[in-house]
């Protein structure tokens, strides 16, 4: 009969002890809900879901501030949530008198969106803070819940600042926007719904650049019939910043 070598006995005992302690540790230390839904502690999902809120959500504000919410609903700021400007306000809904949310009255808050930044999408209303009544608070002229321009924007740059800046330093600086675009009052009032008209035909450029056009002598001329082939002018030339040498 083959006897187990003596040195294997302590080793076997140790292996059993290690595996045993691992199994006991697993039953004792692994959280109860671990593995219920996947390789994680399922209870954590509930814990994260139960975290405290700070922002109440716009519809809650409307419950009490129905007048403001109604005004805002039809305004240019209809898509701006109350808490975008006033900050988190759940505490205010729970204790209206104790916690008063921010009511920004300076210029900084407005400029976060409406200060000129060339990376902003074209058509978004922007001002140059240094030139646009630098000492006045925005509130004096514009009601934040129903922002209106005090007078209809005579200058397209109110919204199309980036294009206007470009054009200003180009050969087209003296050409008015309306020379090529038709911008109705409706467009000024609701710019997203009524779009400004863009030129469709090469003749618009031809008014100045055609061979026989009645315009200043320095303006470069082309033969409208042969120049460009089947391309239309702005396929190659950027009208707001036309190139100097062809």
């Amino acid at each position: 009969m083959q006897r187990i070598p003596q040195q294997l006995i302590p080793l076997i005992i140790m292996i059993v002890a290690i595996i045993g302690s691992l199994i006991t540790a697993r039953t004792l230390l692994v959280p109860d809900s671990f593995g219920d839904l996947g390789h994680y502690r399922a209870d954590n999902t509930g814990e994260v879901a139960a975290l405290e809120l700070s922002y109440a959500g716009a519809h809650v504000c409307a419950d009490c501030h129905d007048d403001i919410s109604e005004t805002k609903r039809d305004s240019h700021h209809s898509g701006v949530a109350c808490e975008s400007c006033h900050g988190p306000a759940l505490a205010h809904t729970e204790a209206p008198d104790e916690f008063i949310p921010d009511a920004p009255r300076g210029r900084d808050g407005c400029l976060l969106c409406h200060g000129y930044n060339p990376a902003r999408p074209s058509g978004f209303p922007q001002i140059l803070p240094g030139q646009h009544n630098p000492t006045k608070a925005c509130l004096i002229c514009h009601a934040p819940h129903d922002p209106q321009l005090p007078h209809t924007a005579e200058d397209c740059s109110a919204c199309h600042r980036e294009i206007s800046n470009r054009k200003q330093v180009s050969h087209h600086s003296s050409v008015a926007c309306t020379e090529c675009h038709k911008a109705t009052d409706e467009h000024r009032a609701s710019p997203r719904i009524v779009r400004a008209e863009k030129p469709r035909k090469a003749e618009v450029c031809g008014n100045c650049h055609a061979r026989g056009a009645d315009s200043s002598r320095e303006i470069p001329r082309i033969d409208m019939d042969t120049h460009g082939g089947r391309y239309i002018c702005w396929d190659c030339h950027y009208p707001h910043f036309p190139e100097t040498n062809l």
Binding site: P5, Q6, Q7, I9, P10, L11
Partner: peptide, 10 residues
């Protein structure tokens, strides 16, 4: 570890 057998076989 208690294994004191140092016979040639061990």
């Amino acid at each position: 570890l208690g294994a004191t057998d140092i016979s040639p076989k061990a």
